[in-house]
């Protein structure tokens, strides 16, 4: 029986320290997760540097991809926040490209026989990574909201037109709802990536198990193989969609900070 003792579906999410480092008692080792984050940053930076190296009037394929990405995010920011939201464009663009690159890098198959630390690793399938990104977004919302509106930002928690006797309850609910934003942002991205990659691995295990089952049933392994092709395509969509959702929700939350008085 091949396959049964092969890697389980969760092994791909294991964190492996590559370069042990420590700061006092804090472990700051370079792990495979950190390595793949660095790779994501390097790949996206290299892509955009290459894309804008020749600023042609009629763009080549690389340049037009970069321009489409720019237009896409700029439209998103303008649509959700309005023109004054464009000061957040660098942040939203960076966020979108980083998540998209990290998601897409995770879809690359591992080179067979590579040491475990170098297996392709989806950093966005770890909730601590997505949670850190979400906390960053919400921190910007809170800091900018108070900076721009002062205490008027707190009006966010008190929607207009609520009877006064209901207000304490509504404020509490709105407060919990606000606190749940970073959590729902991070859960969504992490759960999507985790589920997709587990499904991929389970299908892959089916192929190996069926193939090992001998001549009578071996041919059946074509079905999970077709399945894995379909799931990979779906995952490409999900990788893009989740980066988009994360970015657009950041925009919508930033809109609250920019237009806090309009509630």
């Amino acid at each position: 029986m091949i396959g049964l003792n092969a890697a389980g579906p969760m092994e791909q999410f294991e964190i492996v320290p590559l370069v042990p480092l420590s700061l006092g008692t804090i472990d700051i080792s370079l792990t495979n997760s950190a390595l793949w984050m660095i790779i994501a940053v390097a790949v996206s930076a290299a892509f955009f540097l290459a894309a804008i190296r020749r600023r042609a009037l009629v763009p080549g394929p690389l340049q037009s991809t970069a321009e489409v990405a720019y237009e896409f995010v700029a439209d998103m920011v303008r649509g959700a926040i309005g023109q004054e939201g464009m000061k957040f464009f660098p942040y939203v663009f960076t966020l979108f490209i980083f998540i998209l690159t990290a998601n897409l890098l995770g879809l690359f198959p591992t080179i067979p026989g590579a040491p475990h630390g170098l297996h392709t690793f989806t950093t966005t399938s770890h909730i601590i990574v997505t949670f850190a990104l979400a906390i960053l977004s919400i921190s910007i919302v809170i800091v900018y909201g108070f900076y721009k509106n002062g205490l008027g930002f707190l009006k966010l928690f008190a929607p207009s037109g609520v009877p006064i006797w209901l207000l304490p309850l509504i404020v509490l609910i709105e407060f919990v709802s606000f606190l749940s934003r970073p959590l729902s942002l991070s859960i969504r991205l992490f759960a999507n990536m985790l589920a997709g990659h587990v499904i991929l691995k389970v299908f892959a295990t089916f192929i190996v198990m069926l193939f090992g089952a001998g001549a009578t049933f071996g041919w059946l392994s074509i079905f999970p193989f077709l399945g894995i092709v379909a799931v990979t395509l779906l995952e490409l969509l999900v990788a893009f969609l989740q980066a988009y959702v994360f970015a657009i929700l950041t925009c919508i939350y930033l809109n609250d900070a920019v237009h806090a008085g309009h509630h």
Binding site: V176, S177, L179, S180, R181, L183, S184, I187, R188, A191, N192, L234, L237, V238, L241, Q242, V245
Partner: peptide, 19 residues
């Protein structure tokens, strides 16, 4: 996809409850 919507809505509900 519908799954994306489902993920979105369930994570919203779950996050509120967890907080």
């Amino acid at each position: 996809s519908g799954m994306g919507r489902a993920f979105r809505l369930s994570s919203e509900l779950l996050a509120g409850l967890i907080v």
